[in-house]
Design a protein around this nucleic acid. Structure first.
Lengths: 254, 254
DNA sequence: CGGAAACTTGAGAGCCATCAACCAGTGTGG
DNA sequence: CCACACTGGTTGATGGCTCTCAAGTTTCCG
C-alpha cells in the first residue's frame, strides 16, 4: 500500500513498539487490564479474564486487521503500533475515522450491527490483545466491576467523535489534532512534546476533512511561528501552550 | 428561549405527542421495553425492570432536562416530543449535538464521566421514561439479555455520530438530515413522507454546521426542484428517491 | 395593533479545495 | 553506479462554496 518509513526511524519515540510479547507487560497497556489491576479483582476472576485474551500480530504496515462487513466476534486493545480505521464511500474514496494508539480499544462500534462497520489497517508494526466479546460479556455478568468498565469504555467512545465534529478552522483542527496526540501519548507514558506521526499527511488531512496541501501549509506556518518543529514525520511541540490555545475552540476544555 | 409553534399545529404528524400517560402504551415506544417484550423475559425480571422506570415530564418548550456538568444518575428514553442536546463553546456559542425523537435514548454519553457532558432541552412538550442507570446495570448483571441490550444501545450510539462527520456539501448534509428524520419517524410508526420539523432553522443549521441562510436557500432550491414541499415547519417529501440519492454520499448506504 | 422572533433574500468576502508543477527520498533495474 | 520511476510531501495560482453582513418579509403572540 504505502511504503512505510523503516521501523528504526520510529522506535526512539514509540517505546511500546519495541516491547516483545511479555505476558505481564501488556497488563499495563490495556484498558481492561489496567482496570482489573487497579480495582483488585479476586484471583479467580482475574485468571478467567486473562483466559479470554488472545495476543495477535504482529501485523505489517498496510495489513488489514479487519474489513468492513466482517462478522464481529472480538474487540481488541492496541498493544503496539497505530491502527487506522476508515470506510470507503460510494465514490470509492477513503474516509479516515480515527487513529488508535497503544492502549486504545478498537471494534466497539461493531457490537450492535454484529459486523465491523469500518476497515482497520496497521500503519506500522501492530500488535493487539484480542478479547472474545461474547465471553467477555458473559464474564461481565458475573463480575460487576468488569461490566461497569465495559459501560464506561463504550460511553467514552460515544463522546470522543464529537470532538472533531464542530465547524472549526483548519488551524484549530490541526492544532487540536496535535494536542490530542500529545495527550494520548503522554497518557501511555510516552513523551508529550516529541513524537512521531505514524500516519501520512494525506491520512491526517483526510481525518480532519482537509486537503493534504492545507495540512502542509499549516504545518509550515506553525513551524515558522515557532509553535512546533516538524521534520518529516518527527514532531516536537515547541510551545504547547500556544498550541492548546489554538485548539481550545475545538477541545473546549474550559 | 424560542417561541415555539403551538402544539396544535404539530400533533397531526406527531401522534406520540398526543398520547397521555398510559402505563402500557409506553412499552411500545421505549427501546428497552421493546427489547424486553420481544425477547420474552421471565415475569419477575420484567416487573423488576418496570420498577426502575420513572415517568417524568411533561417538560415545556425551552425547559432544561439536564445541564452540562450535572451529576449523572439516569439515562432516559424520549416518550413524546423532541429533545435537543448541545454544548456551549468557549465563545459562548451553542453547538447542537443532536435531536432525539420519541423512542430514542439520551444520556448514554454521561456514563463514563459520571456527569452529563452536554445540555438537553425540550423543543416542544417532552415526556420521558427515566431509568436509574445504577439499578439498571445491577439488573443487567442478573438478566443477560438486558446487558446485551445495553451494550447494543451504547455501541449503536458510537457509530451514529460519524454519519455527519464527513466533509460533504451543504446540499448533501441537508438531504441526509431529512432522509434520516424520515427514517426515524417511520421507525416509530409515523409518516415517512410528511412530518413537522420541531426545531428551528437555526438549530438545523447549527447541527449541520451551516449558516441558517444556507439552510434556507437550499430548502428553497429543493422546493423549486420539486424534491420536497416546505411550508414553515411542515415538510413533505415529494421525491424521496432523489433525496436519498442526494444523501447517499453522506449515508453511504451501499 | 405592535413588537419580537423566525425566516428569507441579496451582495460581497474569505477560507479552503482544486489543479498543476516541483522537490525529496527510496527502491529498482540495467 | 547511476538513470529512472514512484510515492510522499511541498509550493503556487485560481476558483468556488459557503459565511458574513445587511435588509426585507412573514409569523406569532402579547
Amino acid at each position: 500500500m504505502r511504503a512505510s518509513s523503516p521501523p528504526s526511524r520510529r522506535e526512539p519515540h514509540n517505546p511500546a513498539a519495541a516491547d516483545d510479547g511479555d505476558e505481564f507487560r501488556f497488563c499495563t497497556t490495556c484498558a481492561f487490564s489496567q482496570a482489573c489491576l487497579s480495582q483488585g479483582y479476586a484471583k479467580p476472576d482475574l485468571t478467567a479474564f486473562q483466559a479470554l485474551i488472545d495476543h495477535v500480530g504482529p501485523f505489517k504496515p498496510g495489513e488489514y486487521i479487519f474489513r468492513e462487513g466482517d462478522a464481529f466476534n472480538a474487540i481488541a486493545a492496541v498493544r503496539g503500533g497505530t491502527v487506522k480505521t476508515f470506510i470507503t464511500d460510494v465514490a470509492g474514496n477513503e474516509q479516515v475515522l480515527g487513529f488508535h494508539l497503544p492502549g486504545e480499544v478498537i471494534g466497539l462500534n461493531a457490537i450492535h450491527p454484529e459486523r465491523y462497520p469500518c476497515n482497520a489497517i496497521a500503519l506500522d508494526t501492530v500488535t493487539l490483545c484480542r478479547f472474545s466479546f461474547h465471553q467477555l460479556s458473559l464474564l461481565a455478568a458475573r463480575v460487576p466491576n468488569l461490566q461497569q468498565q465495559l459501560f464506561k469504555l463504550l460511553s467514552l467512545d460515544i463522546g470522543k467523535a464529537s470532538l472533531l465534529v464542530g465547524d472549526h478552522s483548519a488551524d484549530e483542527r490541526l492544532a487540536a489534532f496535535m494536542v490530542l496526540l500529545s495527550q494520548r501519548y503522554a497518557a501511555r507514558g510516552f513523551s508529550a512534546t516529541r513524537f512521531t506521526l505514524t500516519m501520512a499527511r494525506a491520512d491526517i488531512a483526510n481525518y480532519l476533512r482537509l486537503a493534504p496541501e492545507t495540512v502542509s501549509r499549516i504545518l509550515k506556518r506553525f513551524r515558522s511561528e515557532r509553535v512546533i518543529e516538524v521534520r518529516q514525520r518527527d514532531v516536537q511541540l515547541l510551545d504547547p501552550g500556544r498550541l492548546e490555545a489554538l485548539a481550545r475552540p475545538v477541545l473546549r476544555m474550559i
